[in-house]
Design a binder for these strands. Structure first.
Length: 841
DNA sequence: AGCACGCCGACT
DNA sequence: GTCGGCGTGCTC
């Protein structure tokens, strides 16, 4: 490991016995040296959290290195050591180091991303009133300063506020001057306080018999005695005796037991109380199903034989398990997991957030009772912390979860499974580090000499290319299990300008799709309809003057939601009433363009008033468990039609679905993104895979305006290979990934001219090196404004051959960024460097 | 990021 | 003389 330093002079310092290199979760690309106080000098380990002074604040940092000397002059000591054992293993530290280097983020940020939330302690500055409100109010009349008045008004309401909260409430940018004036006049108090660690093991009170009663006959004697005067206590004592140990909360639930009763027994030293950890577990409410014993078919056995061999040998190998929808990939994972556990190793299973349903979890839990920990963002901080700790101490052997589960604190990882490896949700886009969990999985696998299985029915172009160049090994499951035939896919060409008739809107339901729905409803079979756009219509447009309503804060058309009769921005959640007449020309002829799920729903209820339809999109799954609930109800056949956005395409196997309809396959096709075609192929193939049941061929109808699109054609023939070959030549011609590495440099801010200056300065700071990279832009990003922030970007197409690890270009980018941050004033903009962006919007 | 400090113009 | 806004620099 090496660490970035700013070396001021080369003079070896020796104020402390030992020095530690501390990574901090701040956007500064270096580590900081702290002295280790004598008391910790021998016990401090790499990987523990420490509390360190940082300017006036205190922050939680991570010890990444320990040495005897230092060449930094003024060194502060570590304020406190927060762990006795490392929270981050040497192996995970190396993963963090790779992430920091490859995705261009500070090491501290990478480490922070690996730990469950709530493990960071920070100081905050609290401002409080020093005197009574009455006195303050009289003082207010004497104060002329606008800012001071605003601060006092806020404080009268709350008494104590942190500096940050105060800034939010008063909207004053530079508070410090006003606060120091108030401090001088003795009106307010300023103090630095520590925030508590949010997550701790949850302790529960348990009860057992006192040692005295364990002696012969003592118990019976006590009970007899109590029966006379305190029968309830006697009964209570009896229960404790029977159970030996019982949680107090459990005991209290029983008949006739009260707190006073327990207190009396405790006071008389008949029972004793002790603390026991209560492990919080989100999925406990879903009991595991019994494992159904499934005999593997020929293909599954073949795939398993190869993974088993690799697991047994303990060599790093990455497999791409390409298995068509319903081919039984999960069973292969489970068998591989069994193999891994018998080798006394641990495993991680990554699943897209949306597929992490109770059913998925139960399936794994059933096969490995008591060994599976779930890590899920919908779990509370406490639940996640408990899973995390039990993985760390080795009581759980398998971690299952979405993206961040790749950081599960397991030792001796032998297998990493990435299910649906093509899923874009594996790429983190909202926070640093902008990592791709599938790629981290491969890195972590390599560090552990582990086996990595990437599974998909529609592999990403990148992964399949890696098979071609022999980086990954291909495993194939070309047949569906249980003799379910591949569905029959029909493509319906839609015509844009047909007018609505009595038989409904032909732009939503073509007559073949309408007929099929009718047929299936009659036969009591289930139907899935995909329309990958929520709301009612994508935008509303004035028929006379072509005016389109756009968001005030974003460069986005507003989506019409009929249920609330509102226009909504899907980027910033800006909401306004839908106009009755055109705001520009007052025409009443407003037309709804672009079909959303709500529109399909209302059309469906017009055409088939008796059909029971359930809609699933972001708007109907806002609640914590509504997603699971909708799928469960549909599975129990309480509905005939499941209608929704892409989230319906995975997560469940419904064996009564015989028809899948795609209302419009075009929603993603025209996005200015080089993956648009790939996305479309994947989504269509995934949703088509929902159709069909044992011995009955499912039917799929895809409606589209562009029937010539290659993704759609290949979906019809279930021909991934054909799609891949076509797509890979295109990527090659345009030198897009996997033939290059893309890096997006995006600047956003409220002042567009400033954003433009920064992005072009950044561009200019990059030396022209034709052989190393090509630069496209800077240009405004396709979505040029989000939440009043203008967005400009340029794209680096890095030549993989001249920079295979990416470190050459990354160093250049780091230097350029440092230069930019130094030279340009104002910080009202943000620079985002996104390595391997999932999309370029 | 988040904080303090210092400069400068405005205002009493 | 203050106050308030804004830019700059620093964090071991």
């Amino acid at each position: 490991l090496h660490f970035r330093h700013k070396i001021s002079n080369i003079k070896i310092m020796k104020q402390f016995k030992k020095y530690s290199e501390v990574a901090l979760p701040v956007p500064i690309d270096q580590t900081f040296t702290y002295g280790i106080p004598e008391e910790f000098a021998d016990s401090l380990k790499i990987g523990v959290r420490v509390l360190v002074p940082f300017g006036v604040r205190k922050l939680t940092g991570y010890v990444v290195h320990i040495s005897d000397i230092s060449c930094i002059q003024e060194i502060k000591p570590i304020a406190d050591v927060l762990d006795s054992e490392p929270v981050i293993s040497a192996e995970l530290l190396r993963v963090a180091q790779w992430i920091a280097e490859y995705y261009l983020c500070p090491l501290g940020e990478a480490i922070k991303a690996m730990l469950p939330r709530g493990m960071n302690i920070e100081s905050k500055i609290n401002i409080s009133l020093k005197q009574e409100v009455r006195i303050i109010q009289s003082a207010l009349t004497r104060i002329n300063s606008k800012n001071q008045k605003a601060i006092l008004h806020a404080l009268i309401e709350e008494n104590t506020l942190s500096l940050q909260e105060l800034r939010k409430r008063t909207q004053i940018s530079s508070l410090s001057f006003a606060i120091s004036s108030l401090e001088k006049s003795g009106i307010v108090n300023k103090e630095i306080v520590m925030l508590k660690q949010v997550t701790k093991p949850k302790l529960e009170k348990w009860l057992r018999l006192s040692a005295r009663l364990l002696q012969q006959n003592a118990l019976a004697a006590s009970i007899d005695e109590l029966k006379k005067k305190a029968p309830r206590q006697a009964a209570c004592l009896n229960i404790v005796a029977e159970k030996r140990e019982i949680a107090q909360s459990e005991l209290l639930k029983m008949n006739g037991v009260s707190t006073s009763c327990i207190r009396a027994l405790l006071n008389n030293n008949l029972i004793v109380q002790f603390d026991r950890e209560h492990v919080r577990s989100y999925y406990d409410e879903f009991p595991p199903e019994a494992p159904h014993l499934i005999a593997l078919n020929h293909d599954q056995k073949k795939a398993l034989a190869q993974t088993s061999a690799a697991i047994t040998n303990g060599f790093f190998t990455t497999f791409l398990l390409y298995g068509v929808t319903g081919s039984g990939k999960t069973q292969v994972y489970i068998e591989a997991l069994k193999e891994t556990l018998t080798k006394n190793k641990t495993a991680i299973v990554l699943v897209p957030e949306i597929s992490l349903t109770p059913q998925t979890v139960s399936r794994f839990r059933a096969n490995f009772p008591g060994l599976v920990a779930v890590l899920h963002s919908r779990m509370s901080i406490g639940e996640r912390y408990d899973s995390w700790r039990k993985l760390k101490d080795g009581s759980y052997k398998i971690a299952i979860g979405p993206r961040s589960a790749i950081f599960a604190p397991l030792n001796n990882v032998g297998l990493i499974v990435v299910d649906e490896e093509h899923e874009a949700s594996y790429k983190q886009t909202d926070n640093v580090p902008y990592y791709h969990a599938r790629d981290v999985a491969v890195v972590r696998g390599k560090l552990n000499e582990a086996v990595v299985i990437l599974g998909s029915a529609t592999p990403s172009i990148e992964s399949y290319y890696n098979v071609k160049i022999h980086k990954y090994h291909l495993l194939q499951l070309p047949q569906r299990i249980d003799n379910i035939p591949m569905p029959n896919v029909r493509i319906m060409t839609m015509i844009q300008n047909k007018r609505q008739t009595l038989k409904g809107d032909p732009r939503i339901f073509s007559s073949p799709l309408r007929d099929k729905i009718e047929e299936k409803l009659k036969r009591k079979e289930q139907i899935i309809l995909l329309q990958n756009r929520r709301g009612y219509s994508a935008y509303i447009k004035c028929h006379d003057c072509d005016y389109i309503e756009k968001c005030e804060n974003c460069d986005i058309t507003l989506t019409y939601h009929k249920t609330t009769h509102r226009l909504r921005c899907h980027y910033c959640n800006y909401i306004k009433r839908a106009p009755e007449v055109c705001p520009k020309c007052n025409s009443g002829d407003i037309i709804f363009q672009g079909i959303g799920t709500q529109r399909v729903e209302s059309e469906l209820s017009k055409l088939f008033p008796d059909a029971r339809v359930i809609r699933m999109d972001l708007d109907t799954t806002a609640q914590k468990k509504s997603h699971d609930r909708i799928l469960r109800k549909f599975g129990q056949q309480k509905y005939d039609v499941l209608l929704g956005t892409q989230m319906i395409a995975k997560g469940h196997d419904f064996d009564r679905v015989t028809l899948v309809g795609v209302i419009s396959a075009d929603t993603a096709l025209f996005l200015p993104d080089f993956r648009a075609s790939e996305r479309t192929f994947q989504l269509l193939t995934q949703v088509a895979g929902r159709a069909g049941r044992k011995n009955i061929q499912g039917e799929v109808i895809i409606q589209t305006l562009s029937p010539d699109n290659f993704g759609i054609i290949c979906c019809q023939s279930h021909d991934f290979m054909k799609f891949f070959n076509h797509e890979i030549t295109q990527r090659h011609e345009l030198s897009y990934p996997p033939f290059s590495r893309l890096i997006q440099v995006l600047v956003k801010g409220e002042d567009e001219s400033q954003v433009k200056t920064v992005i072009s300065d950044f561009r200019a700071a990059l030396p022209d090196q034709e052989s190393l990279y090509q630069i496209l832009g800077p240009v405004p990003a396709p979505i040029s404004k989000i939440q009043n922030n203008y967005r400009w970007h340029f794209i680096l197409k890095v030549n993989k051959k001249s920079d295979p690890t990416g470190m050459v270009v990354n160093d250049i980018l780091r230097d350029a960024e440092r230069k930019i941050l130094k030279n340009i004033r104002k910080k009202s903009y943000k620079i985002i460097i996104n390595v391997d962006p999932a999309s370029l919007l």
